[in-house]
């Protein structure tokens, strides 16, 4: 690749964006996670009459193909709001005339179930079968750490995308225009063929109503691909700055998926860049503690 980065922006200089999602879990959120576990293990108690929060099992007759229909008072399920209100106070065996999804419905209450959250104790925690977690205190630590790990991983993905965009924009390049145009032309034609092979019509315009000619469609692809050209050079420079190069073994693996040597190289460097940025993002998030 003749086009190359003349100055690679230092990722350490990129400030943390303000909109990175919070990944730490507060005490209140941990309590909510424990309550969620209690709800998941709730016992189902049969009660004689319905109130908000219950599940009311009803026979709905032929209107709904004789299915059992559950109405959930208080949840505002779309289409069932009137039935939810009508069934509050209804007793098992009672028939209520109401409406479902805007149509008249006659519902006969078959069963009313109230969920009673389980008591969270060591026995319930042991029953969860989590390695090394047998007490409520251990579960508190476990669920907090697990959730923070998931949150941090999620935040790191969005952060690494922001870092990559900044690296592309802030780095400086020596651009070989001839090479850029040749790459855009080849890649756009490859994309055009790929669309056809996948059964997607590449002649459909992004805007406007008239179908594109082959050449117009290829021009449209070229414009879509243009921002990726500098990203290729940045990916390569970023990997090299971290001592990562594509050797014969990697070339074999990446070309094995029917990619041209150029595309295999691009895919390799892009994938490694994402991996590196993800690691950097995870470290930065941990450093924010």
């Amino acid at each position: 690749m003749k086009t190359h980065v003349t100055h690679l922006w230092d990722v350490k200089l990129i400030p943390m964006p303000e909109d990175v999602p919070e990944w730490r879990v507060s005490d209140a959120e941990t309590d909510a996670l424990i309550s969620a576990l209690a709800a998941q293990h709730a016992a189902q108690l049969d009660v004689p009459a319905a109130c908000a929060g219950d599940t009311v099992f009803c026979a709905a007759g032929q209107n709904l193909a004789d299915r059992t229909v559950m109405i959930y008072p208080g949840r505002n399920m779309p289409g069932a709001e009137a039935a939810e209100e009508a069934l509050v106070g209804a007793k098992v065996g009672e028939t209520v005339k109401t409406e479902l999804c805007g149509s008249p419905a006659t519902l006969t209450v078959q069963r009313v179930v109230r969920l009673q959250p389980a008591t969270i104790d060591d026995a319930l925690i042991t029953g969860e079968g989590i390695d090394g977690v047998a007490t409520v205190d251990a579960y508190r630590r476990y669920i907090r750490e697990k959730t923070e790990q998931e949150n941090r991983s999620f935040s790191a993905r969005s952060l690494s995308a922001a870092f990559r965009q900044q690296l592309i924009e802030r780095s400086e390049y020596a651009v070989d225009e001839e090479e850029r145009e040749a790459w855009l032309e080849t890649s756009a034609r490859e994309l055009f063929d790929m669309y056809l092979q996948e059964g997607i019509d590449p002649h459909i315009p992004e805007d406007g109503t008239e179908f594109l000619t082959d050449e117009q469609a290829i021009e449209q692809f070229k414009e879509k691909l243009r921002p990726q050209y500098l990203a290729r050079a940045m990916n390569r420079a970023f990997c090299l700055s971290h001592g990562i190069t594509m050797g014969p073994k990697e070339a074999e693996i990446y070309s094995g998926s029917d990619l041209s040597p150029d595309m295999a190289e691009d895919t390799f460097y892009e994938s490694k860049t994402w991996d590196l940025l993800y690691e950097i993002a995870m470290e930065r998030l941990e450093g924010e503690e």
Partner: peptide, 18 residues
Amino acid sequence: CVVLEPIYHAAAADLAGI
């Protein structure tokens, strides 16, 4: 999928019969 999981679990804990 990670975002959906707690929402899905909350619905499962709330809606009997499904």
